[in-house]
């Protein structure tokens, strides 16, 4: 009985995903009439310039924020391993908040803070700038990358720290007993062992940023990311074109997550 229940739950989780993919190949317009196989909606989606622009924006934002988060998060994980208990407690609390606070609050707070900050910085820049056209800071790529990077840095730190905790101390000690410099020990002993975790962190951070709607909704300014575009189209009405782009997004995130899981699996089975 329990087995049947669990099977039903897996069905519940995957059936809607399967339906989006299935109906993206529907020749007709509606779920109730599957009129035949067609890839026309993929063609429509790929030739939609607004959609492609939103996709490009999302790829830029996700790659940049995930890369920055991987650097900052890995450095922070290494630093926290050496820091005192009080420093660690402060960082733990802040990283925990970055992960748990709902996106809508992060989006609003970042919007409010940045608008105030620009209100101070822009006039100052205008006064100090020697030329005629001083640079103006505004919402856009930068603010989305910064806001996504917050969650992602916390995420990468958490993943890399878990791997560092599982790292054998004896190898590190043997290396320094043999007169390797700390940097050499890091490069040839520690880094190779935590690299899969860093890569997994990068992929999950990328997935998070690529899929995020609510944070970007507040801080994107005049930019549009792919989820923002999809959301706006959905509100105008359900179309098979959305199914096509949705199916592509689903398949892309599933592949990214599977890769991340495979990277994390080595030597540390069965835990998320």
């Amino acid at each position: 009985m329990m087995r049947a229940f669990v099977t039903a739950v897996y069905g519940f989780l995957y059936l809607p995903i399967g339906l989006v993919v299935l109906f993206s190949f529907n020749a007709g317009r509606h779920a109730s009439d599957f009129t035949g196989f067609s890839v026309q909606w993929y063609g429509r989606a790929l030739s939609n310039t607004f959609l492609m622009e939103a996709l490009t924006n999302s790829l830029i934002v996700a790659t940049t924020s995930a890369a920055l988060a991987s650097l900052c998060g890995t450095a922070a994980a290494l630093g926290l391993g050496r820091a005192g208990p009080r420093t660690r407690a402060v960082f733990d609390a802040l990283f925990g908040a970055a992960i748990v606070v709902p996106g809508v609050v992060i989006g609003i707070a970042t919007l409010v803070a940045l608008v105030q900050l620009f209100g101070i910085v822009n006039p100052a820049l205008a006064a100090l700038w020697p030329g005629d056209a001083p640079p103006r800071l505004s919402l856009g790529y930068g603010s989305i990358i910064a806001a996504h990077g917050l969650f992602s840095t916390a995420l990468v730190t958490m993943i890399v720290r878990a791997r560092l905790g599982a790292l054998g101390r004896d190898m590190v000690e043997a290396s320094s007993d043999l007169y390797a410099s700390p940097f050499t020990t890091f490069r040839s002993i520690v880094l190779p062992q935590i690299l899969p975790a860093i890569l997994a962190g990068f992929l999950l951070a990328f997935t998070f940023s690529f899929d995020d709607f609510i944070v970007a909704f507040f801080v994107a300014g005049s930019q549009t990311t792919l989820p923002m575009y999809v959301f706006a189209s959905i509100r105008r009405g359900v179309t098979p074109e959305i199914n096509a782009i949705g199916a592509l997004v689903l398949v892309a995130s599933i592949l990214l997550v599977i890769t991340a899981q495979l990277l994390l699996r080595r030597r540390r089975p069965a835990s998320a």
Partner: peptide, 19 residues
């Protein structure tokens, strides 16, 4: 198979239910 949907676009998964 449980972890995968967690990391998959909530927007698209919710949209599936609209459908």
């Amino acid at each position: 198979l449980i972890i995968i949907p967690f990391w998959t676009s909530l927007l698209i998964r919710t949209y599936a239910w609209m459908y």
